[in-house]
Amino acid sequence: MITILLNNVEVQVEEHWTVLEAAKFYGLEIPTLCHNEGLSPYGGCRLCLVEIGEKPKTRLVSSCTYRVEPGLVVRTDTRRVIQARRMMIELMLSTAPNSKILQDLASRFGVTQQRFTLRNEECVLCGLCVRMCAEQMDGRAIGFQNRGHKKKISTPFDIQSEVCRLCGACMYICPACQLRCQGPEPDTAICNACLTMEPTCLERYDELQCWMYDAGRCGTCVQDAPETGRPKPE
């Protein structure tokens, strides 16, 4: 057991844990997309970013790939982290605007604008299907091909693979395959239909102050802060 400082609280963690596992053990929710407990860590979606180190020398690392170390200082909900996550959601949403999981994330994190050209590629290259196929299904039928902006996931030569057993696990795990619900404005890039409230703590403090993670956000902060000029939830 080693001691780390998790959101200003000293906690005991196992040496082999990642920061994500430690945070989860202590009830802190860190959003993930490319992470799955049954698969190897990948660090591709960058949603699980946390800020480590002490000011002024802090840096962002992906918590799903970062091992805990003695005396590590982790902060999971700083302004920098939240802004980085919002940017990642916005970027991924521009690639796959039809994904329900991404739309829900956008609602939850208050991503209300879309500044990038929509590409409708319906794949965010999170690699879940590739790892699922190789690690759980022992199939190795799909994989990454090309690189840079041409990178894609496909079978060899884009024809049906001989080793594919059509198990469908890749589609089961895909975060972009599940279509978004047709909200009030289905044509816009971000539907935000589930967005009823967003915490206003960041306007006053440097960190999210919400302790209502698991119970869902109560929204008291929004109702108590009419001076922020935000439209009140209906």
């Binding site: 799909i142 001989e162 080793v163």
Partner: peptide, 18 residues
């Protein structure tokens, strides 16, 4: 080696052409 890994390497580098 799984065929997909060979294809992955072959498509990754510009020195190779399919």
């Amino acid at each position: 080696i799984p065929l997909i890994d060979v294809v992955g390497v072959a498509t990754f580098y510009r020195a190779f052409s399919l």
